[in-house]
Amino acid sequence: MLLDVVDLAKTFTLRQGWPVPTLVDVRALDGVSFSVDRSEALGVVGESGCGKSTAARAALRLIEPDRGRVMFDGRDVLTAKPAELRALRRRMQIVFQDPASARDPRQRVGSALMEPLAVHGVARGDVARKRVLAILDEVGLPKTAFDRFPHEFSGGQRQRIGIARALALEPDLIFADEPVSALDVSVQAQILRLLDELKQRRRLAFVFVSHDLGVVRHFCERTVVMYLGRIIESGPTGQIFDAPKHPYTKVLREASPVPDPAVAKAKVAIEGEPPSPVAPPPGCHFHPRCPLATDICRTQAPALRDIAPGRRVACHHAS
C-alpha cells in the first residue's frame, strides 16, 4: 500500500451562542480508514460537510488529527520530524478546489513553480526553468504563462497551474480536493481528461475527493462513501454504483444527474437536511433520513463490515 490511513479522527471546537458562548465539538472525522495503492485512484464521496476534505488535509498533515495513523510508503506521517515530513511531502501533493485562492496572487507562475524545486534542492536557474516549461506544456499551458500573474488566467487555466505545481516535485500521490467543482462543465471535462492522462503517463496515485458521483465514476477504481465523518460504504467503484448496499449511497446515486432524458425514473425521496455534525443523531447517523430505519438503527451505530471481497458497508440491514 502506498498510503494507509487508519482510524483517523478530528474534532473541531467551535464557540457558539450569544450572549454566553458555549464550546461545541464538531466531529469532522470519526474513525476514518482507507488505503490507496500505487497508481490507483480512490474516490472519496459524500455531501458537503461530511469530512471528506478534512480527511485529505489530515492525511497530508495540513491539519493535525486528534487520533489515528497515516502511513505513507511505510513511513509514519503523523510522527515525522520536520525534515522527514518535508521529504514525505515531496511525494504527496494536493490540488485545491478553488483555483483563485490556491495561488499567491503576487507571484508569477514561473517563479511559483520554480520555488519548490529550489526549496528541495532539485534544480535551480536554467535547469529549473526548463523543467517548469516542460511541466507547463504537459498540463496544456503555453510557454508565455511563465511570466504571468495568476489573476490573468481563467478558472480552468488556474486549475492547470495548480496541477502543474502539484506535479513540480514529481510526487507519487496527489490529493485532489474537489478539483473540478468550481469549474464550468465543459472545462471540467478538459481538466478530468488532463488528470487521466497524467495518471496513465506518470503512474500517479490519486485520492479524489468529490461530491459528484459522475466524476468519481469516470476517474476512480475504488470509492469510499462518507457520511458525517464516518465511512459508510467502500468498494470497487463499478460495484458501488451498480449495486449500492447502503441506503445513503442509493440516495446519493439517484441525486446524481444523468444527462439523458430517457433515463428519467422515479427517484428515491430523501427526507430532511443532513443532520448537524455538532449534534449527530445517536446510533446510525443516517437513520433520521433512512427509509429502512428500525429500532436498532436508532440506538446502535453499525460497524463497517465486509459483505463481499473488497466491499464493506456500515448498515444493519445490508446483506
Binding site: 488535509r57 497530508l60 495540513l62 515530513l85 518535508r86 521529504a87 511531502r89 515531496r90 504527496m92 501533493q93 494536493i94 485545491f96 478546489q97 478553488d98 485562492s101 490556491a102 495561488r103 499567491d104 496572487p105 503576487r106 507571484q107 520555488e115 519548490p116 526549496v119 528541495h120 495548480g162 505545481r165 513540480a168 516535485l169
Partner: peptide, 26 residues
C-alpha cells in the same frame, strides 16, 4: 485562510519562507 498557504506547506516550505516570502508581500 487562503488555500495557497496550505499549498506552500504541502510543498514543504519553511514557516519563515511562507510568512515572509508569501504572506508578507500580500
Amino acid at each position: 485562510e487562503r488555500d495557497f498557504v496550505d499549498a506552500c506547506r504541502s510543498l514543504g516550505y519553511s514557516d519563515m519562507r511562507i510568512m515572509f516570502g508569501h504572506i508578507l508581500p500580500n
